Amino acid sequence: MAPDPASHVIVHPNVLYVGTPAFLVGSVNPNGTPNLAAASSSWALGSMLCLGIEADGQTALNIAARPGITVNYPSAPLWPALVRLSRLTGRDPVPDAKADRYTYEPDKFGAARLTPQDSELVDAPRVAECLLQFEAIVRRMTPGLSGEYFMVEAEVVRAHADPSIVRPGTDEIEPGAWHPLVYAFRHFFDRGVEVGWLPSSRMAPHPPVID
C-alpha cells in the first residue's frame, strides 16, 4: 500500500546524508609521511569514483600534488576509528575555519588505531583493517560552488578484498558477506538484510521475482 501523501511533513535536516558508505582516504604528505582522512560523500560509475573532499584539509592539498590515493571501506566494527579522526587534521597550522573544532595530528593512522599497508600501484597506503580497499588515481578536482569542498574524480586502478568477502572460486565480492559501515544523518549503521537484486547482478542465484 502506498503511503498517504498527506502524511508527509516538511522537515529541515541539518545534513543530507541519507545513508552512504563511510570511507577512509589515504594520501601522502609533502614530507612523505602518510595521511588518513574520514569521509562519507561518494558515488561510483564504472571504474570512476567521485569523492567529496573538504577543500581546507590536508587531503585536498596532498592529492593536488600527488594524485595517487587509496579509498578504504570500513565495516561496522571500525566506526570508532572514524570518530577518532573526526576532529583531527593533518594541516599545520590548523586553518582558521577549523581552529575551533580540529586539532593538528601528524600521525593520523596512529590516532585512529589503524595500520598502514603498502599499496602496489600508488604511493598512498591502504588501511589494513578495511576488508575492501581501492587504489586510485585522481583525474580531476572540481571546486564546489561554495568553495568548501572539491568533487574529486578518481579512477580505480586496483581493488583489494579480504578473502572473507570474496565468493569462492571467483574474483567477485560476495554481496551477502560485505557489510560496509553506513553513515546516515551523523549516525553509523551496519548494513541491513538483503531484500532483492537487479537483473544485471552476476552474483544472484536467479533473476529477481517481482509482481
Rank of each mutant, 00 (worst) to 15 (best):
S86V: 09
S86H: 09
T89H: 14
G90F: 14
G90N: 13
G90Y: 07
R91E: 12
P93S: 02
V94Q: 03
V94E: 03
P95N: 07
D96A: 15
A97H: 07
A97V: 15
A97G: 13
R101C: 01
Y102T: 03
Y102D: 09
T103Q: 15
E105V: 13
P106S: 10
P106Y: 08
F109C: 02
A111D: 06
R113W: 03
R113Y: 07
L114N: 01
L114A: 04
L114K: 01
P116I: 04
P116V: 02
Q117I: 00
E120H: 13
L121F: 14
L121Y: 10
D123Y: 07
A124T: 02
P125G: 02
R126A: 11
F134R: 09
F134Y: 15
E135W: 02
I137Q: 13
V138L: 11
R140I: 00
M141C: 08
T142Q: 12
P143C: 12
G147E: 07
Y149W: 10
F150M: 07
F150H: 14
V152S: 12
V157P: 07
R158F: 01
A159Q: 12
A161W: 05
S164Y: 07
T170K: 05
E172N: 11
I173W: 01
I173H: 00
E174Y: 10
W178D: 06
H179M: 06
P180I: 05
L181A: 12
V182E: 00
V182D: 04
H187W: 06
F189G: 00
D190T: 14
